[in-house]
């Protein structure tokens, strides 16, 4: 798994690529915790490069989304492939985190 990070109009865009497996989930949790600790309150996760996720990865998303909500911030997901969306849906993640098919829609949701 690899990350790319940029800041656009106050939104942190974290691009994630590769496999979000158990080992990678530890790195992802650390990365997202660091971003939130450093003041990020609007976070866009671009999952276009993610071709695998398991329950450890889903738990990281849910944990970070919960923490962000407690801080009156927001995390949204963008560019989710059909296979990854299916797992997000059956695990109930889509009830807790908004998922958008494009970056543009995700940006709009973070600005509303």
């Amino acid at each position: 798994m690899t990350f790319s990070e940029e800041k656009v109009d106050g939104v942190i865009v974290l691009g994630i690529s590769g496999k979000v497996n158990t080992e990678a989930s530890e790195d992802l949790l650390k990365k997202m915790t660091d971003l939130i600790d450093n003041g990020a309150r609007r976070l866009l996760l671009d999952l276009s490069g993610v071709d695998y996720i398991n329950s450890s990865g889903l738990r990281v998303f849910l944990t970070a989304a919960k923490r962000m909500a407690d801080l009156s911030g927001k995390i949204v997901l963008a560019n989710v492939t059909e296979l990854i969306y299916q797992v997000l849906h059956v695990s109930g993640c889509t009830s807790h985190i908004e998922v958008y098919s494009s970056r543009e829609e995700a940006f709009k949701a973070l600005k509303d």
């Binding site: 398991n54 329950s55 889903l58 738990r59 944990t63 919960k66 695990s91």
Partner: peptide, 15 residues
Amino acid sequence: RPLEERTVGGLGIHL
């Protein structure tokens, strides 16, 4: 339910 109230391992088996 909030994540912290769920059983560990339950999500994986559900998947």
